[in-house]
Amino acid sequence: MTVSASTRTIAKTAAAAKSDLHKRLRLGESFIEAFLFFCGAVSILTTLGIVFVLGKESLLFFTSGEVTLWEFISGTEWQPAIGRFGIWALLNSTLMVTAIAMLVALPLGLAVAIYLSEYASLRARSILKPVLEVLAGVPTVVYGYFALTFMTPFLRSIFGDEIVQIYNTAAAGIVIGILVLPLVSSMSEDALHAVPYALREAAYGLGATKLETAIKVVLPAATYGVAAAFIVAISRAIGETMIVAIAAGAGPSFTFNPFESAETMTGHIVRISGGDLSYDSIDYNSIFAIGLMLFVMTLTLNIISRHVVKHFREEYE
């Protein structure tokens, strides 16, 4: 970056007196800065790597002649053995699991956030927040165990063994909901907390009750922040892998029944890559096409969420 400037400095230094104030070449400093820049650039390389890897293998998949892009994005049957690669067989269950997870996480997470931000005493907060942090820190494979050995038997005891299959999207979805609940509640609570106290005072001053203040003033004022939390939660649920790999079932199936087994996009990637997979086969390439789709979906959601958050911050800063 500063090579030409540096050589000039050397020349000047040689000619100049001992104690001049000219810029000095500090090799060590420049080297350190270059190294630190490299550290930052690794993240760019990572992204490029992801895009390149997913893109290249997906390209191989679509140019293999066995499947067209249209068949991929419109088909509802995923059976590599007979050359059927319809993403909806997997995407449908991913969306279903995500929807179930959101049915659990959004209302619960928001209610917890409102409770923590508007109602809970300092003492209650100091106990509840670490509990939620613990919940957030449990590895997903443990949640997978929980889904299979607790949630599924629980659902079966309610709805009956003949209705609820051992592997099903409902149990996986509910447990993913529990997994992302701390995320929703802590992000939403931050948003509620950021609403200026003066607005609450104004509402109380007009004779509003605590509920009216929380629901009709604070929550609407925090809409963008809460929305961002919701979007991140959706993205997280879509990308969640171990819970569905363990509890949702192996084998793509296009079904809308949450009590039936159905493999999701992530679950399929794990199962295929976990087996003995020969590189450069169509199966191998196909998981990268799924991966690309997953990447695009989650990235889009994350970018939207960060824009929404920015909107929220601008409103109050």
Binding site: P196, A198, L199, E201, A202, A203, G205, V217, P220, E315
Partner: peptide
């Protein structure tokens, strides 16, 4: 109040 605090509505 001291500072104008209209609702964001």
């Amino acid at each position: 109040f001291q500072k104008p605090n209209p609702f964001p509505k």
